[in-house]
């Protein structure tokens, strides 16, 4: 147990002393705040509360970057992963510690970004509208899960470029799951589509039979856990 706590504390310190992590956090927090203010000032949305939700994809992007750099920084120049595994030989513990740190950072980032975005949107002239705590929680949980998926994929690929491009494009340009949904409705069980209603109301999603927020969130969480388990198994077997 103490070894696991040591690992979390070590990974926490690592994350906070890496410029890339801090930049990702800044994107996750400052991005939604700025975009919400912009939305509100342009009257792009009906209310400040709406402006916040419309700005939340930037939180998701920050979370993706956070997950990618947390795993990917181990494989940058000089291969820091060798020191990591030499000082913490239980690799699964390291991956769990990284997952705990990423989750913590995303949740803290969300807890700052969402109220900050609301304040900014109000200050920029948005009407109050109706703030939905459940929706905010959904946004934070979705961001944390997508960050963990990014962590898992990057652990498998050992390079940051591909996961970063694929995940950010998937989240902004077009979702692969959505394309698949055009072929089969089963695609609504794929992780990002499954969790979509945590962020967005029924009326804002391009598919008609999306999973409700709670079951959808659970499906997305199950994907995440499965992916991390695969990453742990692969990481355990291969040479560092």
């Amino acid at each position: 147990m103490s070894a696991a706590l040591d690992a979390v504390a070590a990974e926490w310190r690592k994350a906070l002393t890496l410029p890339a992590t801090l930049i990702a956090l800044a994107v996750a927090v400052a991005g939604p705040v700025a975009l919400a203010a912009l939305n509100a000032s342009q009257n792009a949305t009906d209310s400040a509360a709406e402006a916040v939700l419309a700005a939340s994809p930037l939180l998701t992007i920050g979370a993706i970057v956070l997950g990618v750099v947390t795993a990917g920084s181990e494989y940058s120049a000089g291969r820091p992963v060798a020191v990591t595994f030499a000082v913490m030989p239980r690799r699964a513990v390291v991956l769990v510690a990284k997952a705990v740190v990423v989750t913590g950072l995303v949740l803290v980032g969300s807890a700052v970004a969402m109220p900050g975005a609301l304040l900014a949107a109000r200050a920029a002239g948005g009407g109050p509208g109706e703030t939905e705590p459940g929706r905010w929680l959904g946004v934070a949980v979705y961001a944390a899960l997508i960050a963990l998926i990014a962590l898992g994929i990057t652990t498998l690929t050992r390079s940051t470029v591909v996961p970063l491009i694929v995940l950010v494009a998937n989240g902004t340009v077009v979702s692969l799951a959505f394309l698949l949904y055009l072929v089969t409705p089963l695609a609504r069980y794929l992780p990002d589509l499954a969790g979509m209603r945590m962020l967005a109301g029924d009326d804002r999603i391009a598919i008609d039979d999306a999973l409700a927020p709670l079951p959808g969130g659970l499906v997305m969480a199950a994907w995440t856990v499965a992916l991390l388990a695969v990453a742990a198994a692969v990481q355990r077997r291969r040479d560092a």
Binding site: D6, A10, E11, R13, T17, L18, S76, G78, P80, V87
Partner: peptide, 17 residues
């Protein structure tokens, strides 16, 4: 084996932890 962008002291600090 330290990450290039982490200061020497911070590298040792996480290893110690």
């Amino acid at each position: 084996g330290a990450h290039r962008s982490r200061p020497a002291r911070q590298h040792l600090a996480w290893v110690a932890r």
